[in-house]
Amino acid sequence: MLRSRLDAVKLFGVLMTVVASLCVVSAIAFEWPADRGVYRFGFGALRAGFLRGVEFGVAESLMEASDDGEMVFATEHPALPGGYPLRGNSIMAVAHASDMTTVYTGLEQGSLATYLRSVRKGDILGRSSAADGGRGAIVYVFDRRERRYINPLIVMPELSDKKPPVIQSISLITGGVETSLAATRTVRQGSYTVLLDVVDVAPSGDASAPYDIRILIDGSERARVVYDAAWSLEGIPVLFGGAEIVEYSYVADDGRLSFGPYVFSRGTVVLAVRVGDYSGNIKEQTYSLSIQ
């Protein structure tokens, strides 16, 4: 009973997130700021942590304003006055009337249009620098009202994508012992954490992050994360509007994604992993596990 209530609460959270996302989509008409949206790494890709924006990779391409707004902050110094280093040696922020702020980093020093005050959609803000330590220019979309970063895919024009995500591996881990489901379907009963290695191919062809992951056990949805938002609570980074998962507990040290733990009792358990991208392409893998 309690589990079904929790599931209902989670489902409600997910539904509200989707509704909120649709509202945002209807209210905002942003344009891709660079490379016609051909990004390398999307929201949630692991780039020195959970990427809260979209990273482009083409050097010396122009970065344009995604929408009308006002430039509120820009600097080309490598660090803030307190010594805090800036990723890509620059940062620019444009506040939009829709309670959104777009933040641009990794623009080439000397190219930032720091003289701008009022910004029109398509105004050139700067030029993306050559990849800094393998990192390109990044655009973030920040919701000022909710104080959270949202997935830019939600507010940018949809990109054509017919390839489903790829589930590279699924493992169960308990007590430090890992069992790959590619090797065996038989495990002892106990409490297991599910570790996933999943990617979605970005428009550039690079391995990026999916948008939607569901874990189903015996047909019941036990976990669902939607890559819609990231924020912080009391100094702790939190992910996904409907799930509110602490980033540290979700992303393992090796970059795999962690779900659970789930208790597997003797018998047969059907574990299904369903991964989707923002365009709705879905990849699903189902395993019938023998629990001894």
């Binding site: 902050f73 803030l80 006055p81 307190g82 010594g83 805090y84 940062i91 922020a93 933040v103 980093t105 973030y140 920040f142 104080r147 959270r148 924020w231 912080s232 100094g235 702790i236 980074p237 980033e247």
Partner: peptide
């Protein structure tokens, strides 16, 4: 310790 701010930092002082 590590601390996460909700938004990009524009100023810092220790």
């Amino acid at each position: 310790w590590s601390y996460s701010f909700p938004c990009h930092l524009s100023a810092l002082s220790a």
